[in-house]
Amino acid sequence: MHIILAIDSFKGCLTSEEVEAIFAQALTARGATVRSLPMSDGGEGMLEAFISALHGQIVPAEVHDPLMRPLLASYGIAPDGTAVIETAKACGLTLMTPEERNPLIATTYGVGELIAHALRRGCKKFIIGLGGSGTSDAGKGMLQALTDSFAPHGTIHDVLSRETAGCQFTLASDVRNPLCGREGAAFIFAPQKGATPQMVEELDRRARQFADSSARLMGKDASTQPGAGAAGGLGYAFMQYFNATAQSGADLLLDLTAFDQQLEQADLVITGEGHADRQTLMGKLPERILQRTRKHHVPVWLVAGQTDDTEELIAAGFSRVDKLTPEGMNLQEAIKPETTRQNIFRWIDRHF
Rank of each mutant, 00 (worst) to 15 (best):
A186F: 00
R205M: 03
L171Q: 12
S173D: 08
K193T: 10
E183Q: 15
R176M: 13
N177I: 07
G184I: 10
F187M: 12
E202L: 07
D174V: 04
Q209D: 14
A172I: 05
Q198A: 14
L171N: 08
N177P: 05
V175H: 02
R206Y: 15
R205Y: 10
R182M: 14
E201W: 03
M199G: 01
R208H: 13
F187L: 14
E183I: 08
R208K: 15
G181V: 08
V175F: 09
K193L: 00
D174T: 07
P197W: 01
L179T: 08
C180T: 15
R176P: 11
A172L: 13
P191K: 02
E183L: 14
A207V: 05
D174N: 08
R205K: 14
I188N: 04
G194P: 03
R208T: 12
E201L: 11
T196F: 07
F189L: 11
Q198K: 09
D204I: 02
P197G: 06
E202A: 12
M199H: 07
N177V: 02
A172T: 06
G181L: 09
I188V: 15
M199E: 09
D174M: 02
P178Q: 01
A195W: 00
L171E: 06
E201C: 10
A207F: 01
V200T: 07
C180Q: 11
G181K: 02
E202Y: 03
R208P: 04
T196K: 05
V200M: 00
A172R: 09
K193Q: 10
R206P: 07
A207P: 05
R176G: 06
R176L: 11
F187D: 10
R206W: 15
E183D: 14
E183T: 12
D174L: 04
R208Y: 07
L171S: 12
G194L: 11
Q192N: 13
